[in-house]
């Protein structure tokens, strides 16, 4: 989802170097999605592959966190979202790299390297924009405030996850919160930005209760496989 959103910047970035960087991150994320969906398809063992899971599920069957499906916004929004998500992903991948599932551990080890770069890149930009001009400071602060209500969901756990935790396959997402908060607070303060205040945390992605944006995004993303059923590309 986030790879898709980032790819919308391609050809429209503020400087050519950022077109390259954002496309590069998008490519990493789509690559990670491909591997994870492939692993999920194997686990499901119902004849679906990664593409079927990506292109032939509708909104209510998608299980992504809401934060990643939000429209890309301005560059400040994109940077703030990438930062908040990548720090979460970093801790998630770190924990998953010791999963009892070898495939998942392998995917995590690869993704961890990529995510370190995503964190560094987005944190550098957050600091630049936060501690840049009055305009950039205002824009990126607004973005953080707007995004904050979607961060809580990242650290919710549920019965499915708990069952996997017991088998040492997955990690309890709630256990990642403290490390995330510490890292995020540190960079936000270096960026001379203010931590957003307590707000009601939106949730629903994990149970298929999405924002209205997802349906529009899937309509675009899935148009070819849906229009030409069974065709190979």
């Amino acid at each position: 989802m986030l790879g898709h959103r980032l790819s919308e910047w391609c050809g429209h970035g503020p400087i050519l170097e950022e077109d390259i960087a954002l496309t590069n991150i998008a490519l990493d994320l789509v690559g990670e999605a491909n591997l994870l969906l492939g692993r999920a398809a194997t686990a499901e063992n119902a004849g679906r592959d990664a593409d079927a899971l990506a292109f032939l599920r509708d909104v209510r069957e998608y299980r992504n966190a809401l934060i990643v499906e939000l429209p890309k916004g301005d560059f400040g929004f994109t940077v703030a979202r990438q930062f908040l998500f990548s720090v979460y992903a970093l801790h998630q991948w770190e924990a998953l790299s010791t999963s009892a599932d070898d495939d998942l551990a392998g995917i995590a080890a690869k993704a961890l390297k990529e995510t370190r770069y995503h964190v560094r890149h987005s944190a550098e930009w957050l600091v630049r924009l936060g501690d840049g001009t009055d305009e950039s400071h205002g824009r990126v602060q607004d973005a953080l405030d707007e995004l904050w209500r979607f961060t809580g969901e990242l650290f919710l756990t549920d019965d499915v996850e708990q069952a996997l935790v017991k088998q040492k396959l997955a990690v309890d997402s709630s256990s990642l919160f403290d490390a995330w908060k510490r890292d995020v607070t540190d960079v936000i303060s270096r960026a001379t930005l203010r931590m957003p205040g307590d707000v009601y945390m939106q949730r629903g992605g994990r149970s298929g209760m999405h924002t209205e944006h997802l349906g529009v995004m899937l309509a675009e993303m899935q148009v070819l496989p849906r229009t030409y059923p069974g065709a190979k590309w």
Binding site: P14, I15, E18, F75, R128, G132, T133, S136, R139
Partner: peptide, 9 residues
């Protein structure tokens, strides 16, 4: 659209 980003940098 990118002017404010370049100015900030």
């Amino acid at each position: 659209d990118g002017a404010w980003v370049r100015e900030a940098a």
